[in-house]
Every structure is written in structure tokens, then in C-alpha cells.
């Protein structure tokens, strides 16, 4: 029997699975997945963070489950199997939020349920979990949801700061007293188009830093 070389748990390759999505493999700005929820839940920072954590739980665990079953899932019905797994996870997360964080759950409303349709999750299950072992799949799930959460937090920071004048619900602008000088919150930042423009600006910034991301015509 030949000896199987054991890979260390956090080999360079595995670490790359986690750090890649934070930068050059970012699910939102580079793979352009999961844009819809990035527009919907980023008005305030708190729901955005809760959303990021929910996606992390769902994505990491579904990745592991699908990856563990990958040899026994018939190719023709794999999408349905994936959906069942995701839906189960989402319902668990949704119920958990309703029980322990009702206010945030109400703010997020349908968008927790809509994690099922979040392209990142299906995309990662299809592209990664079906072809890799559970441990790398778990790391990939973590990495991608961190990349997703990072963009969500950046966007929601600017939208909450400029649109509502607060950070994490703390009224920064009011404490600085800028309203006395005639400053007003920018109502446009609260509307979805501004989220799209903010994401666009992040993409612009990222690509001007890393020219290899710019598509050739």
C-alpha cells in the first residue's frame, strides 16, 4: 500500500483559499457574485454585519456537507441536492436570528431567506465543494464569506456614515456638531443606487491598484 502524504491543516494552499477572496478573488468585486444582497442590506452597518455572519455560517457548513457527499450525489440532480442543503441551513439561521436577535431579523426581513438565492453560495458549491475535500471546502467557504462580508462592511460604513450620520448606530455627526453648520445627511446614500455606485468605486479602486484584474478587450 502506498503511503498517502498527509497535508498539514493550514498549508500554504489552504491559507490561500481563505485570503484570496479578501483580495484578488473577492466574490463581490471580482467574481461579481452576490451583488443583490450587497445593495439591499448595506443601509446600516449592524444588519450588514449580521448578514455577513449568516452567510458565513450557511456557506461554510453547506460547503462541508456537499463536499462530504460529493461522491454520492448523482450529477443530474446535484442542484436540487445543493438547494436542499442550503435551504436547511438558511432556515436554521433564520430561526436562530428570530429567537436571539429579533430586531435585526426584522430589519433584514426577507433577505435572510433570500440567502438561498445568493449567487455566492451556489457558485462556491458548484465550483469548489463538488470537487474538493471537506476541509479545503470549509476554508473556501470561510474565505469567500469573509470577502463578501468585507465589502458589505465597507459599503455599509460609507452608507451609514454619509446617509444617516452614524456608525454602528452611534450618532457621530451629531456628536461632532456639524449639523449646526448647515450640514445635512445625504438621502441618496440610503437609496440602493448609491450602494451600486459605492461598490463600483471599490471595484475601480481595486483595479487601479492591481492592473491584472482589468479585463482585456
Amino acid at each position: 500500500m502506498e503511503k498517502i502524504e498527509k497535508e498539514p491543516l493550514l498549508s500554504a494552499k489552504n491559507i490561500k483559499l481563505m485570503t484570496g477572496p479578501l483580495g484578488d478573488q473577492n466574490p463581490i468585486t471580482v467574481q461579481v457574485l452576490g451583488i443583490c444582497s450587497a445593495l439591499a442590506v448595506t443601509v446600516k452597518m449592524k444588519p450588514a454585519i449580521v448578514m455577513a455572519i449568516s452567510v458565513m455560517v450557511v456557506l461554510a457548513i453547506s460547503n462541508v456537507i456537499i463536499s462530504a457527499m460529493r461522491k454520492s450525489i448523482p450529477g443530474r440532480i446535484r442542484i436540487i441536492v445543493q438547494l436542499v442543503v442550503i435551504a436547511t441551513m438558511v432556515i436554521i439561521v433564520d430561526q436562530f436570528l428570530k429567537a436571539f436577535a429579533f430586531d435585526v431579523s426584522k430589519q433584514l426581513s426577507v433577505f435572510v431567506g433570500l440567502i438561498i438565492t445568493n449567487c455566492i453560495i451556489m457558485g462556491r458549491l458548484e465550483a469548489f465543494a463538488l470537487a474538493n475535500k471537506p476541509w479545503p471546502a470549509f476554508l473556501d467557504g470561510l474565505g469567500n464569506s469573509w470577502g463578501y462580508g468585507l465589502i458589505l462592511i465597507i459599503v455599509s460604513f460609507f452608507r451609514e456614515f454619509l446617509g444617516s450620520g452614524s456608525i454602528m448606530g452611534f450618532p457621530v455627526m451629531e456628536k461632532m456638531g456639524v449639523y449646526n453648520f448647515g450640514y445635512e445627511d445625504n438621502g441618496f446614500m440610503i437609496l440602493p443606487p448609491m450602494a451600486l455606485i459605492t461598490v463600483g468605486l471599490i471595484i475601480w479602486f481595486q483595479r487601479s491598484r492591481n492592473k491584472s484584474l482589468i479585463e482585456t478587450k
Binding site: N186, F188, L191
Partner: peptide, 10 residues
């Protein structure tokens, strides 16, 4: 348009 949606009061 930016002004209109940002600061509707004005």
C-alpha cells in the same frame, strides 16, 4: 438629480 435625491428638502 444627485441634489434632488440627496437633499430633497432643498
Amino acid at each position: 438629480a444627485f441634489l434632488f435625491f440627496s437633499y430633497p428638502g432643498w
